[in-house]
């Protein structure tokens, strides 16, 4: 494993921990999109089915369990926790899952590495992950005051994606036969979605002002 991949995984882990800690300690999920969190739970469930069929490494299995566990915990907090759920504003978080899930199913059936149940699910999870952040970005745009932790969560997720791209470039040159068009293109699309957010994040950081996205 190269340093970019490891750094990417660690930022991903940090983003999830920031979000879980925010929800757990201040008992509020204000500004957090349940839709995005549910999409991530679907992404991890469909992609990590291979923990039952292939063993890659202890690290790999451990991280998969962490991402599965954390995404389900966050969804549980927002839906079921008796205090946290009160801070969830479902009138702002209106993005419809189905508009993202259905096209990803169709795309996965058409474009996959092999037309098998596992490979179609794998492709589906990559396509869905690429767009899963959209409800969160829409919610951020609607929220007048983005709190620091929610901003940091999205920022860390964006950094994780960017590091994965560097990791693919590195692997392309250092490993033989490392070509994964589906992963690369959907990963690139996913990272581009953060570009706009990054721009405003750095602006607010530079001028030391509260992060606010233009409507």
């Amino acid at each position: 494993m190269n340093i970019f991949r490891l750094a990417g995984d660690m930022t991903h882990l940090a983003s999830v921990l920031v979000l879980l800690l925010k929800i757990h300690t201040i008992k509020s999920c204000a500004g957090v999109s349940l839709k995005t969190q549910e999409l991530y739970a679907i992404v991890f469930t469909t992609r990590y089915l291979d923990i039952f069929t292939d063993f890659i490494s202890l690290y790999n299995t451990f991280m998969k369990l962490i991402f599965l566990g954390s995404s389900y915990s966050i969804v549980w907090y927002i839906r079921r926790h008796k205090i946290v759920r009160r801070s969830y504003d479902k009138n702002q978080d209106t993005f419809r899952h189905v508009f993202l899930i259905l096209p990803c199913i169709v795309l996965a059936l058409l474009i996959n590495e092999k037309l098998t149940f596992k490979e179609v699910l794998w492709a589906f999870s990559l396509y869905l992950e690429a767009v899963a952040i959209l409800p969160q970005l829409v919610l951020l745009q609607r929220t007048k005051n983005i709190d620091n932790l929610t901003g940091q969560y999205v920022f860390l997720l964006g950094v994780y994606r960017a590091l994965y791209i560097v990791n693919w470039i590195y692997r392309y040159f250092t490993e033989t036969h490392f070509v994964h068009w589906i992963t690369w293109i959907s990963g690139l699309v996913q990272t581009l979605l953060y570009a706009d957010f990054f721009y405003y994040y750095f602006q607010s950081w530079k001028t030391n002002q509260k992060l606010q996205l233009p409507a």
């Binding site: 890659i56 490494s57 990791n167 693919w168 490993e175 994964h180």
Partner: peptide
């Protein structure tokens, strides 16, 4: 390091 597979990624 596993070669030729991106499926070792998360």
């Amino acid at each position: 390091e596993e070669q030729g597979s991106g499926k070792d990624e998360l």
